[in-house]
């Protein structure tokens, strides 16, 4: 694996698409030398010049181009969400562990996403769809707050041709024809053999816990449940300690870890 870049390299925004009221997807291409290749599940530190940098998972990898979906929750992410084609940012990376999709060869796949957690899972879904012969049945289960908060609705529809795609929302409007309830309820209708399935889970941590516990109860091995955890990533290289979670430095040892490692850490009130 090539070492990640420790200094931000210039990237230019080549497209911007609003996803929801507070979330947009931007595509970046190198303005000079590219960063080493990213794997699904890894993240970059994206620097809005003069404002600061934040960790953003890659939600698309196309050659040297990087796609990120960013939700405006603070000054930096708001600045990134507001970027338009032609604007420049600094990018460091790739950082962290990936989803490790190839290790799930032969297994049924369960991709469970809550809210913006679908973004880091998107490249994994695309990789699985591109190589269907390597895997068993592909299930994509997505929960969101409201119908308008669902990311990539057109893609979700397109994936239905080759995967079991189920969506649910917490609050329905009169036009919504999908399910209403928490994302774990969708597991009842997923197609998988729990003894030969690998799950990939990303979303708010209570949702991760509920999903992973439910999967274990159904017979999925904790080592075959991979979850993406989030703490305040800062340096990206395991030096500053901002992202420490017990014995883990999530920017280096995560963000993707197995449920075997994560479960006990998420039950501790403060680490």
């Amino acid at each position: 694996m090539t070492a990640p870049s420790a200094v931000p390299l210039p990237y230019r925004v080549v497209s911007h698409r609003d996803e929801t009221d507070d979330t947009a997807t931007i595509v970046l291409e190198p303005a000079g030398a590219p960063l080493p290749p990213f794997a699904p599940g890894q993240f970059a530190m994206v620097y809005a010049f003069g404002v600061g940098d934040v960790p953003l998972s890659v939600c698309g990898i196309d050659g040297n181009r990087l796609t990120h979906t960013v939700r405006a929750v603070g000054a930096i992410s708001s600045a990134l969400r507001a970027l338009r084609p032609g604007d420049c940012v600094g990018v460091r990376g790739p950082f962290g562990t990936g989803w490790g999709l190839p290790e799930a060869a032969g297994d049924d796949l369960l991709v469970v996403a809550g809210g913006i957690g679908l973004a880091p899972l998107r490249p994994l879904v695309l990789a699985a769809l591109a190589t269907p012969e390597r895997y068993g049945r592909l299930n994509v289960l997505v929960g969101a707050r409201e119908p308008g908060d669902l990311l990539y609705p057109a893609e979700l529809t397109g994936w239905q041709a080759d995967a079991r795609v189920l969506t649910t929302v917490d609050r329905a409007d009169e036009r919504w024809q999908g399910d209403v309830g928490v994302v774990t309820t969708l597991l009842d209708r997923a197609s998988f053999d729990p003894h030969s399935a690998t799950a990939f889970v990303c979303g708010p941590e209570p949702m991760i816990r509920a999903t992973a516990d439910d999967l274990v109860q159904r017979g999925v091995q904790p080592d075959r449940i991979r979850v993406s955890l989030e703490r305040t990533m800062h340096c990206g290289t395991g030096h500053c300690g901002h992202c420490q979670l017990g014995p883990l430095l999530l920017c280096r040892d995560g963000p993707v870890v197995t449920w075997t490692r994560a479960r006990s850490l998420l039950l501790v009130r403060e680490l």
Binding site: V73, G74, A75, S77, T185
Partner: peptide, 19 residues
């Protein structure tokens, strides 16, 4: 499930972090 939904997990975060 209802209690989980009460948390409004997908709503705006309230951490106050500069992100």
């Amino acid at each position: 499930a209802t209690r989980t939904r009460l948390l409004d997990l997908y709503g705006p975060p309230d951490t106050g972090a500069a992100r």
